[in-house]
Nucleic acid binder design. Structure first.
Lengths: 151, 151
DNA sequence: CTGGCCAACCGAACGACGTTCGGCAGATCT
DNA sequence: AGATCTGCCGAACGTCGTTCGGTTGGCCAG
């Protein structure tokens, strides 16, 4: 996949602020607005940029408590792993869902109102028959990197 | 914190597509563009919306291999936890860094080119003196929810 | 060496957009 | 009931996104 340093610079800008105006970026990079627009459209069409999203502060919407829930399925239930995954992803509390190797099969990153709500969520999840083991870790701090530049 | 259903609707829209035009959103919600602009400015000023970010496809930038690295620090090194955390967050491979309770102290969500690069990263991390235990899980699938609506 | 070809970039022009501001309506309090 | 304040509206202005024709520079074939 082609990816010169102009594309990279645009990626870096748009990851920091997806609402930067086209003209601003063009001026900053020393290219014409029309060129800039074409490059960005190319990035979208090639799928390099998959979307633009507003980041919402979890505290502001009363979801200050985060946790990582590690889940191991019963070996006999692994066939239903996809269905289980879909279920968890669709839970409104879920922020991320990882299917992983190692000691657990899934890690669910969730955000809820408080520890009580976390308790309720875990107890609710534990009802599912396919689960062999479930353990939760409270997240004290979470840092997310929005800028993912090529290595 | 005040948060009526108009703010909520705007949040939902902007989380799905941060580049929607102000007029479009206003029309969709049946309000004037000026009103819409004012509400969004309010959300930003109150910190409900912390930013707008372009989402980049990791495969497109040759970072298709993801992992969760669980790290436990030596008890004597826990005082340096913040410094260690900063170090990992600044690694270009790091996507997320969680400080958690439970069996591990930190979970690092990383994206690298291939398993070889993952091996290098883990071996490099393991050199740090404050680490008592480190174990990595390959991420087979990762689903991220961009829309975080109030519960 | 030269001619032709193709891709990328530019600049102008037009329609659409963001943003501001004055005014208005509804609610609240005295 | 009158005053006050908050939130919303609609018009107007300057800016922006987007398109398109023309130009340049690099590359390959003859």
């Amino acid at each position: 996949m082609v990816m010169d340093e102009l594309d990279t610079a645009l990626l870096r800008i748009l990851q920091n602020d997806a609402r930067r105006t086209n003209r601003e970026m063009a001026a900053e990079l020393g290219i014409a607005p029309s060129t800039c627009l074409e490059r960005i459209r190319g990035l979208r069409e090639r799928g390099v940029i998959s979307g633009y999203h507003a980041a919402v502060d979890l505290q502001a919407i009363d979801r200050s408590t985060q946790a990582i829930i590690s889940i191991k399925l019963r070996p006999q239930a692994m066939a239903k792993a996809t269905a289980f995954q879909d279920y968890v992803v669709r839970l409104p509390q879920t922020l991320d869902m990882f299917m992983v190797s190692g000691g657990s099969d899934f890690l669910a990153h969730v955000a809820v109102k408080d520890t009580q709500a976390l308790r309720d969520l875990v107890l609710d999840l534990a009802k599912r028959q396919e689960i062999a083991d479930i353990r939760s870790s409270v997240v004290f701090e979470h840092h997310h990197r929005t800028t993912v530049l090529p290595l």
